[in-house]
Structures are given as structure tokens and as C-alpha cells.
Design a protein around this nucleic acid. Structure first.
Lengths: 97, 97
DNA sequence: ATAAATAAGTTTATTTTATAAACCAAATTA
DNA sequence: TAATTTGGTTTATAAAATAAACTTATTTAT
């Protein structure tokens, strides 16, 4: 009846992060922060969780002299996002069997 | 960019409850329990939360000699569910502005 | 008749999670 | 050179989800 919702994606901020990365493929930390309106601390924690699950990969480089954290969605992450949307549909479709 | 997600609905079990009630309008506690696969304790807590927000109303009657708890979605609940779906779309649509 | 099992929940306790506050280091600006 | 900004991380707190334990009443079995 109801498909289970991946708890890693069923979180407002993590879903927003993944949503950005699904279309942009990669993005810098400050950009994600700005687009989601998240605090840096919260974003840092949630990025870590997505990275630990290998839904994204995090590359730390420099932009000039300043540190620059880039987040990139992985194939696994894209597949998980697709699956999450499919699961969500089981809750949203008003369907009598 | 991303619309905030009503925290009351952004919960797997509460969303499932509301999803059932959106199509059936009302349902008995054991039926919801069976359809969602939730434990009675968890269901009881989440039903209370939805009722406290007036997204559903809970009527306690008897069915023969046994107690019977009926949950019914309210207009406010229906509107909240619609709004939640609209908000969700901002996370799911891969749209570049 | 009475003991065991089932039904229908509720309450309480525990574990997770989300979130913000505090912190740190380096770079820039005043 | 002192203050501010940038780009974060770590730690602490508040809130949430969930299950375990409990309650009350009803059947069913002995």
C-alpha cells in the first residue's frame, strides 16, 4: 500500500540539497546554503549524512586562497532520489484499488 | 525557491494516515493500523497530533460492546494536505529558472 | 466458573533527528 | 593591527519518531 520513504531523503533540508544537485549535478557549499536558507551548521551536518550514504560526494578545493567545498550528486544518489519520488507517489495518489 | 514543508505532514506515518483519510474521509483505528503497518502506540500518538492540529477529528464510539475509534479528516486537514503536495512539488520539479 | 488469549487503545520511555549555538582558522577590510 | 567577513566544523539542545510496557474490557477455551 504505502512504500517506505528513505529516511535519508525524507528530510526537508536534505531533500532540498538533493533537489538542487539533481538539476545542477554539483554546487558549492555557500550556494546551497543560500538557496536552501539553511544555517551553515545544519547544512554541514546534513551534507555529511548524504556523503556518508554516498548519495553525494564532497570535494574540498580552493577558490583562490579561500576554501571551497563542492558537493556533487552520485549515481547512487540520483537513483535514491528517483526511488524516493516513486515511493512518495504512493502517499499522494488518491487511488482506490 | 523551496517552499517550507508542514512538519506535521512531513512524517511518514502521519502522511500515510492523511493519505488514507483524503480518499476515504473516515476510517477506524484498526483499519488505519493495518493499512499503514504502524504499531498501535505509534499510531495513537500520531493520531493525537493530527487531531491537536485539527487536521482530523477523532470520534470514540462503540461497535457492539467494543470501543471503536473513528478518524475523520477535516476541511482544514484537506487544505493542509493539498498545500503540502504543492510545497513538495518545489522539491521534486527539476526546474531551472 | 475461571483462566488464557485477544482487542483496542494509551502512556511512558528510549532512541533518533533536526537544528542552532558556539567555535575555529584564514583572509579581507578599515 | 584590530575588526569583520568568509567558510565552514563541532558540540549542545530541543523536538520527533518509535517501540515497549501497560490498561481495560471482551471473548474463547478448559
Amino acid at each position: 500500500m504505502f512504500k517506505p520513504l528513505d529516511p535519508l531523503l525524507h528530510s526537508e533540508l536534505r531533500l532540498a540539497i538533493m533537489s538542487l544537485l539533481i538539476s545542477d549535478l554539483e554546487a558549492e557549499f555557500p550556494y546551497i546554503k543560500e538557496q536552501t536558507g539553511a544555517t551553515a551548521g545544519n547544512l554541514s551536518v546534513q551534507v555529511d549524512k548524504l556523503a556518508a550514504a554516498e548519495y553525494i560526494e564532497v570535494v574540498k578545493t580552493f577558490k583562490g586562497k579561500r576554501p571551497c567545498t563542492i558537493c556533487r550528486i552520485t549515481l547512487k544518489g540520483q537513483q535514491a532520489f528517483e526511488a524516493y519520488i516513486e515511493a512518495l507517489k504512493s502517499y499522494l495518489q488518491v487511488s482506490k484499488p
